[in-house]
Design a protein around this nucleic acid. Sequence first.
RNA 1: GGAGUUGGCUGGGCAGUCGCUGCGUCGUUAUCGGCGUGGAGGAAAGUCCGGGCUCCGCAGGGCAAGGUGCCAGGUAACGCCUGGGCGGCGCGAGCCGACGGAAAGUGCCACAGAAAAUAUACCGCCACGCCUCGCAAGAGGCUGGUAAGGGUGAAAUGGUGCGGUAAGAGCGCACCGCGCCGGUGGCAACACCGGUGGCAGGGUAAACCCCACCUGGAGCAAGACCAAAUAAGGGAGCGACAGUGUGGCCCGCACUGCUUCCGGGUAGGUUGCUAGAGGUGCGCGGUAACGCGCAUCCCAGAUGAAUGACUGUUCUCGACAGAACCCGGCUUACAGGCCGACUCCCACU
Length: 86
Amino acid sequence: MTVLARRNDGGLARVGLAISKKHVRRAVDRNRIKRVVRESFRLHLELLQGLDIVVLARGGIAAKNNQELRAALNAHWNKLARCRKS
RNA sequence: GGAGUUGGCUGGGCAGUCGCUGCGUCGUUAUCGGCGUGGAGGAAAGUCCGGGCUCCGCAGGGCAAGGUGCCAGGUAACGCCUGGGCGGCGCGAGCCGACGGAAAGUGCCACAGAAAAUAUACCGCCACGCCUCGCAAGAGGCUGGUAAGGGUGAAAUGGUGCGGUAAGAGCGCACCGCGCCGGUGGCAACACCGGUGGCAGGGUAAACCCCACCUGGAGCAAGACCAAAUAAGGGAGCGACAGUGUGGCCCGCACUGCUUCCGGGUAGGUUGCUAGAGGUGCGCGGUAACGCGCAUCCCAGAUGAAUGACUGUUCUCGACAGAACCCGGCUUACAGGCCGACUCCCACU
């Protein structure tokens, strides 16, 4: 997946999802990915304060299970938090 | 015990923690919080049919186009379902079938073959006719007769047998098949019986076509309401035998200018949105599909789109797969499990 972000003035964290039918064919998989991303985002709210984030799905993401997705997201969140500080 | 056919049902369970969302309620108030309660499927899928609903004034006439195609019933309707008929497959339970018309017309039929549909004659068979040779038997030729046999093909102008004949031929007869007529049974499809004809003349209609029946168009981004905004104007063209509603066309009907370029400008919310050809139970009618009556229940309604995640435990380790206006079907995908009915084979009693 690709994660984009920029600072905002509100001090709140916001997330947008772009899970296209082109990259994830089945509706069940699209729903699953969105749930996992939202869940992970919710659990890391404090880390991501003041950021507007967009998560883009890429081909092959449907083959990953929930644990793999969570691990990948955690890596992205941590990287974003470091970038914001610098 | 084995092999199989068929009709249904089911599609992990329990506990805890953290979340999402509809409704109700209380607090707080224009936003959160507490409590209670509801929250994907048998196919939600493919979008292949049918209907409801909404708008197009009405959905009217004709042509075109498309669909359906044994009969009866069921249904709001259907291309669906049920029962029956006919044909095919299977020892059987059962399964499969676009299953009207080829003497209304047209087209097509590769290769092979003489010939693929007006019929015709390659190898053959025959000599009742004529000619030549010969005593004769017979041989050859001309001219004809014939389609039994061979050969080609997926398919060759009914099949088998007997008679008949120069050789043959439905030429004649018997049985079978087919056509026509009549009768009987059945609502019907159709079946059976009797008579009669001497064979009508290949296949193909998911080829055109003919016959019968059906279909107006667009779709919830349909449509309705609320609020906000708005630009008037200028140039060019067409023209009342026109343009729009109107959709493949024409008529009919209604409305009145229309098209294009420049310039300018909007697209937020509410509703439609779930109580329905609805589910469950009982009774009654019907072979069945289904119908009727009574009782009872309320069972998703999101709008970037909600059902999840984590942990523990347990089992037979969990398939295909995510509602988007709503129903009825069809088709396709699907780990495993459960129940009913029936058939065949083997063994024992």
